[in-house]
Deep mutational scan, measured.
Amino acid sequence: MDVFMKGLSKAKEGVVAAAEKTKQGVAEAAGKTKEGVLYVGSKTKEGVVHGVATVAEKTKEQVTNVGGAVVTGVTAVAQKTVEGAGSIAAATGFVKKDQLGKNEEGAPQEGILEDMPVDPDNEAYEMPSEEGYQDYEPEA
């Protein structure tokens, strides 16, 4: 019985440690998101679009440190934060509304985080759909 109880105690310690790591990862992701939003706020009209992409990228980098179902929630929060940063930029006159959601080359930025393969159960990952990809044929 002692062996059984000791095993359960060790398992509990492992769960607590994993929860603490997840909590730490979420806190880091939130900190990076805040950094990115402050970065966007300090940019001029020309830099705002690039700044919004930076927020998304920093958040995406930190999301990889967070495991399990938390990833889905962090990704949703990050996307809403990026959308909010863009709205703030438009409201303050840093950028025109028609410039939001495009990178410096004018290509749409939507789907940055949505296409990231995420499995809350950590069982399997699927690649994003290939609808947006084109076949590449090298020139002879």
Rank of each mutant, 00 (worst) to 15 (best):
H50P: 09
T72V: 07
K97T: 15
D115N: 05
P108V: 13
K80C: 08
V16G: 07
K32Q: 05
L100N: 10
V40S: 00
G51A: 05
A76D: 08
Y133G: 12
F94E: 04
V3N: 09
A11F: 06
N65E: 08
T75C: 12
A30V: 04
G47M: 13
P117I: 10
V63W: 13
M116A: 09
D135C: 12
G67D: 03
P120G: 10
V55Y: 02
K97W: 13
G51S: 09
G106V: 10
K45P: 00
E130K: 07
T59D: 00
E130N: 08
A30S: 01
V118Q: 15
E105S: 10
V77H: 03
N103E: 05
K80N: 14
D115A: 08
V118A: 04
V74A: 07
N103T: 14
G106Q: 15
G132R: 05
G86F: 09
D135G: 09
T81W: 15
A69C: 04
V66R: 04
E110L: 01
H50E: 04
N122Y: 03
Q109N: 09
T59V: 08
V82F: 11
S42T: 06
V52G: 01
K96W: 15
K45Q: 13
P117C: 10
A76I: 05
E126C: 12
V26C: 04
D119T: 15
E104G: 03
A78V: 11
V82Q: 06
D119Q: 14
S129H: 08
K10Y: 10
A89Q: 06
Y133D: 12
A30M: 09
A30F: 07
E57F: 09
Q99I: 11
A85E: 03
E139L: 15
K6Y: 08
L38F: 09
Y39E: 02
E20K: 08
P108W: 03
E20D: 06
S9I: 13
D98Q: 07
E131K: 05
A56P: 04
K10C: 04
V82N: 05
V74D: 02
Y39C: 04
T81H: 02
S87W: 02
V66L: 10
V37T: 00
A19P: 00
T44R: 01
E110Q: 08
K102P: 06
A90F: 05
E123Y: 05
K32T: 06
F4Y: 14
G31H: 03
K96H: 13
G68K: 11
G84H: 14
I112D: 11
L38S: 01
T92M: 15
A78H: 11
K45M: 08
E139I: 08
K32L: 09
E28D: 06
E130T: 07
E35V: 13
P138F: 13
E20F: 11
E83L: 11
A91F: 15
T75I: 13
N122P: 05
S129C: 03
T72K: 08
K102F: 00
D135M: 14
S129I: 03
G73A: 09
V3P: 00
V15A: 02
T81I: 10
K10T: 06
V15C: 03
N103S: 06
E61A: 14
Y133W: 13
Y39A: 02
V95S: 11
A30Q: 01
G73D: 05
L100V: 08
L113A: 15
S9H: 04
A17Q: 08
N103C: 15
G51K: 08
G36Y: 15
V77Y: 15
V63T: 04
Q109T: 14
Q99C: 10
L100E: 15
P128R: 08
G47Q: 01
G25A: 15
A19M: 14
L100Y: 09
P117D: 06
T64Y: 15
S42E: 14
Y133R: 12
A124S: 14
Y125V: 13
K43Q: 06
E114N: 10
Q24T: 11
A30N: 00
G84W: 14
E13M: 00
V37A: 08
Q79I: 08
A91L: 11
F4A: 02
K10L: 01
K23D: 00
Q24A: 02
S42Y: 04
A27W: 09
K43W: 11
A27E: 01
G25I: 15
N103L: 08
F94N: 05
S42H: 00
E126D: 09
E46P: 03
E105C: 09
D98S: 10
K32W: 12
Q134C: 13
A90D: 02
E123A: 04
N122S: 12
G68C: 14
D121V: 09
P128K: 09
A78W: 11
I112C: 12
A89R: 11
K80F: 13
D119K: 12
V95G: 03
A124K: 10
G7P: 02
T22Y: 11
A78Q: 01
P120L: 09
Y136S: 13
A78I: 13
G84R: 09
Y133M: 13
P117R: 06
N103Q: 10
Q79A: 05
M1N: 00
K97V: 10
V118T: 15
G106P: 08
E104M: 04
F94M: 08
K97Y: 11
E110P: 04
E46S: 07
V37R: 00
G36K: 05
I88P: 02
S129W: 06
V118K: 10
I88M: 10
A78R: 06
A76N: 01
E137L: 11
A19W: 13
V40P: 00
A140M: 11
V40N: 01
G36H: 11
T72I: 14
G7A: 11
Q134A: 12
Q24R: 09
N122I: 08
V71S: 03
Y136P: 14
L38M: 09
T22G: 07
G132I: 12
S129V: 00
H50D: 03
D121G: 13
N122E: 04
E130P: 12
K10E: 01
L100T: 09
V55Q: 02
Q109Y: 11
A56S: 06
N122T: 03
E61G: 03
A69G: 05
T22K: 00
E57Q: 12
K32M: 03
P117E: 13
S9D: 10
Y39N: 07
K96S: 09
N103A: 11
K43V: 10
Q134D: 15
E83R: 10
V118S: 08
F4Q: 00
F94G: 13
Q134M: 04
S129Q: 09
P108S: 11
E131G: 03
M5T: 02
A69L: 02
V37Q: 00
V40T: 02
E139T: 03
K96F: 12
Y133I: 09
T75L: 14
K23E: 00
V63Q: 01
E35P: 02
Q24C: 08
A19N: 02
P138E: 12
D2W: 05
V15W: 14
E131M: 05
T54K: 14
G86C: 08
P128Q: 06
V95N: 12
A29L: 12
A11G: 02
K23A: 09
G41R: 10
L113I: 09
G93F: 09
K6A: 08
L8Y: 06
V37P: 01
E123F: 04
A107T: 07
V48A: 05
V48E: 01
G84I: 09
V82D: 03
P120A: 07
E35M: 12
K58C: 01
M127G: 12
K43H: 04
G51I: 15
E126L: 05
K60L: 08
G106R: 01
D98G: 13
D115T: 13
L38Q: 02
A85I: 12
A90V: 13
E114W: 14
A17E: 06
A124R: 09
A76Y: 12
A11V: 15
K60C: 10
G86L: 10
P138L: 11
S42P: 01
L100I: 12
P138K: 11
Q99W: 10
V66A: 05
Y125A: 08
D121S: 09
E83P: 06
Y39V: 05
V55W: 14
E20Q: 08
A78E: 02
G86W: 08
T92F: 15
G25N: 06
V74P: 03
T75V: 14
A27Y: 14
E20A: 10
E105K: 08
K102L: 05
E105I: 09
L38H: 06
D115L: 07
D135V: 06
E139M: 08
A56R: 13
P108D: 08
V49I: 14
K58I: 08
G31I: 09
K23F: 11
Y133V: 14
D115I: 04
Q99S: 15
V15E: 00
